[in-house]
Amino acid sequence: MVSLSKVIRPLKVTFSYLFKRPFTVMYPKETLQPAERYRGIIQNDINRCIGCGACVLACPNQTLELMAREIDVDLDFTNPKSRMRMRPALDLGRCLYCGLCVEACPTRSLTLSKEYSVISMNRVDMLYTPEELAREKRLPVKERIRRFMGYYLLPKAFGGKYEKELMKLTEEYRAVVSKYGKKEITKEERDRLLSELEEKMFEVIREFGVEGI
C-alpha cells in the first residue's frame, strides 16, 4: 500500500511555495548589477597604452592585433619598427573574455569593463578599431571596414572561402603599403592601387551578405 506520509509531505512542500516571493529577475526591465571583478568587454586607455604588443602575444585566440591609429594615416604598418605607434584593435566575436591580455599589459591601460551586452546584426560590427576600443566613438560600417583593410582580423572574421579570398587581397594590400614605406612607389600610385584593392574587398564582403556598404 502506498504510505500516506510519502504522498502528503511533497504536497506540503509544494504548497508552501504558493506564498513565497518569485525568484525571477524581469530582465530587461530589472537588471542585476554585475560584481566588482566582472569580466565584460575590453577597454583600452589609448593615452596610457604604449603599443608594446604584449596583449597580442598573450591572447589565446588571436583576437587582438596592433593597428595604426587614425592620426597615422600614412604609416607603413608592415614595418615591425612602427609597432610602437600602433595600438590594439580587437574582434569581439573572437574574444573569450578570459582576461589574459589585461594581466599581460605592463601599463595597465587595458581593462575589462562591466558591460556584457554584445549584440550586432553582422560580423563587421564586432570589429573595434583602437579609438572605438577607447570608447571615443563608433564608426559607420563602411569606414570601419576601410580602417581594417590590410589587417588579418578582417579575413579571420569571415571564414570559409571568403576568408581565403580576403586573405589574398590583404596580402596584396600589405605588399603595396610596404612598397610605399620603402619609398618604391609614389603616393598617387599607392592610393590608386589601394582603392582598387578596396573595391575588390568590398565586393567580397557584399557577396558575404553585409549590407549598407
Binding site: E36, R37, Y38, R39, C98
Partner: peptide
C-alpha cells in the same frame, strides 16, 4: 554562481 562572480569575475568559465 553569484559567489563565483564575486571571486573570479565570471559565472561559468572562470580561468
Amino acid at each position: 554562481l553569484d559567489l563565483f562572480e564575486m571571486l573570479t569575475g565570471a559565472r561559468l568559465t572562470y580561468t
